[in-house]
């Protein structure tokens, strides 16, 4: 038995449609199952009950709105968190009941009391052939009347103008930001700049830094500079003291530290998070964002994770008053790699 699909009212057959029942050996579509009446369709009492339920739900919504007002007007904020929490709860639950009351009520009404007979509607062709023909003719007429095909001079100059005209719209964005220049290659650190505590900016003596301790360090004067955050984003340093025996400085870097005290850039060479987690027994530094791990005993070589370069070391020494100072700026750009870094 074949299902007579075309009888379903689709006008025209220019579009091939996937129709179960194309081949002979397929089941016939049995059509919509018979409608099964609901409780409310058969029992007037059930109908009445559903009606009352819907009304009750709408009443709950009213109560919800009142709860909102109660929270808004009768729970004054007094700088305590409990008060705010209570107000937030009342506003939220009030809104929730107000909305759910309406929503659930309407849906319950639709489900129990509105007709639930499924209705069939025919699909129409998205683009009937007649429309296509008409449209084609219109487009051709438009093209003809405009004369764009017959006048290549006009067409080509228009094309050229249209291609060029948007360029200013791109160029005008040039002033979004300055050019990088070599700003990424320098930080505030320089010869003699004292290492100070973050955030207070108080200087640090070498004797303050005991074995096992870690200081979060900013250059002296950072808190006073105009573009503080930009400078801080490059200059933050982590200062640690190890047993000098455990450090293995490479040739030329022996005196970058002071008696086991070493300073490394805190900005991850991966994508720039602060590498601030110092494990004082393993001497590993861990970045909390992407877990790059650096080994202090090997001049902060990467031993795990996505970073590819060691953290740059800040050469330090002690000044006459016993304070730690930088011997120079970092010897390489800090933070994530960039094309011009080289």
């Amino acid at each position: 038995m074949i299902m007579a699909d075309s009888s379903n009212g689709a006008p025209g057959t220019s579009v091939t449609v996937a129709t179960p029942g194309r081949e002979l050996d397929e089941f016939e579509n049995p059509g919509l199952p018979p409608h099964r009446p609901r409780l409310a369709d058969r029992d007037p009492r059930a109908e009445k009950r559903a009606e009352r339920q819907v009304a009750l739900l709408f009443l709950i919504s009213v109560l919800g709105t009142l709860l909102f007002f109660a929270g808004y007007f009768f729970v004054p904020l007094n700088e305590t968190i409990e008060r705010l929490r209570l107000q937030n709860l009342m506003l939220g639950l009030g809104t929730a009941f107000a909305m759910l009351g309406i929503g659930v009520g309407i849906v319950h009404w639709a489900k129990t009391l509105m007709p639930d007979h499924e209705v069939t509607e025919s699909r129409h062709e998205i683009r009937p052939e007649k429309d296509r023909r008409d449209a084609e003719k219109i487009v051709n007429d438009i093209l003809d009347e405009s004369g764009i095909k017959r006048r290549p001079l006009i067409r080509n100059t228009l094309l050229g103008a249209a291609l060029l005209a948007p360029l200013p719209a791109i160029a005008i964005f040039r002033d979004l930001g300055p050019l990088p220049g070599n700003s990424l290659k320098h930080t505030m650190w320089d010869t003699g700049v004292r290492l100070t505590r973050d955030p207070s900016g108080t200087p640090i003596r070498a004797s303050d830094v005991t074995i096992g301790s870690a200081f979060h360090v900013i250059p002296e004067g950072l808190n006073e500079v105009e573009n503080k955050l930009e400078e801080k984003a490059k200059a933050v340093v982590l200062l640690m003291r190890l047993d000098p025996e455990e450090l293995n400085p490479s040739p030329g870097r022996e005196n970058w530290g002071y008696d086991g005290i070493v300073a490394y850039s805190k900005i991850c060479t991966h994508v720039g998070c602060p590498v601030a987690l110092y494990e004082q027994q393993t001497h590993h530094l861990l970045c909390p964002c992407h877990q790059s791990t650096f080994d202090l005993e090997q001049e902060c070589e990467v031993i795990f994770g996505p970073a590819a370069r060691p953290l740059p070391q800040l050469p330090i020494e002690v000044d006459d008053e016993g304070y730690l100072v930088a011997s120079s700026d970092f010897q390489e750009p800090v933070g994530p790699s960039f094309w011009e870094r080289g």
């Binding site: 379903n8 049995p30 639709a110 639930d116 499924e118 069939t120």
Partner: peptide, 23 residues
């Protein structure tokens, strides 16, 4: 059953579908 590639079977916008979607 009753659903084919050339028809749509369901509820009309007014009132059932509008009520359900709006609710």
């Amino acid at each position: 059953p009753g659903r084919t590639n050339t028809n749509v079977v369901g509820y009309p916008v007014g009132p059932v579908y509008a009520a359900k979607a709006g609710g």
